[in-house]
């Protein structure tokens, strides 16, 4: 049931967009090609960030330091420690957690419990620190007041519910 609903979300969305476009007599094909063209710019913009973040994250991960720390935590946690780096880095950098998600999917498989949990965590929250820095920075706001606390509270809520929901839906 869960997977039937999940599988329908994307096709229905695409269908809605196409039908509405036809209904409004838009050149849907041209619009599609035009939009897809923008991906070149975006990819060019994010490539340096991904390169830099992968370098940093890979050095940290492959050094074995995190394994050492997380193994100490393993007995006290009720979910796989492998997702801990993601949880801690999620509010800081989107590209970093994307890199870690990439690693986890490659190592454990996308249909493993770890793979599913990591996928949901990535999809459920956003990079609070990055967004606050960028958005407030762009208009010259220096005093950000309680925004960081509210943003982090939302992140914690998202991650905790991700762990509970994946446990409920897919079993441990």
């Amino acid at each position: 049931m869960v997977s039937v609903i999940s599988n329908l979300i994307i096709p229905l969305m695409v269908l809605l967009v196409i039908l509405y476009g036809l209904f409004k007599k838009v050149d849907i094909y041209d619009a599609f090609v035009d939009g897809a063209k923008d991906s070149f710019d975006m990819i060019a913009k994010i490539f340096p960030c991904i390169l830099g973040m992968l370098l940093g994250v890979n050095i940290l991960l492959n050094s074995g330091l995190l394994d050492y720390i997380f193994n100490l935590l393993r007995p006290v946690l009720s979910f796989p420690v492998e997702v801990l780096p993601m949880i801690f880095l999620r509010p800081i950098s989107g590209t970093t957690t994307l890199a870690i998600l990439n690693d986890l999917l490659a190592n454990y498989g996308p249909d493993s419990f770890i793979g599913r949990l990591a996928s949901v965590i990535q999809g459920a929250t956003d990079t609070t620190l990055y967004v606050l820095t960028l958005y407030f920075g762009s208009v010259g706001i220096k005093k950000i007041r309680y925004s960081l606390w509210a943003g982090l509270a939302a992140d914690v809520a998202g991650i905790v519910s991700a762990i509970i929901l994946v446990g409920l839906f897919f079993g441990n």
Partner: peptide
Amino acid sequence: SLRMMYGSLNPTEILLASLLATAISTTVG
């Protein structure tokens, strides 16, 4: 897309869980 690339049998199966988690996160926020 990443799940698809790594050969998931069902790349979109996580959508509902992800949707609920994000809704809870936004509400709490």
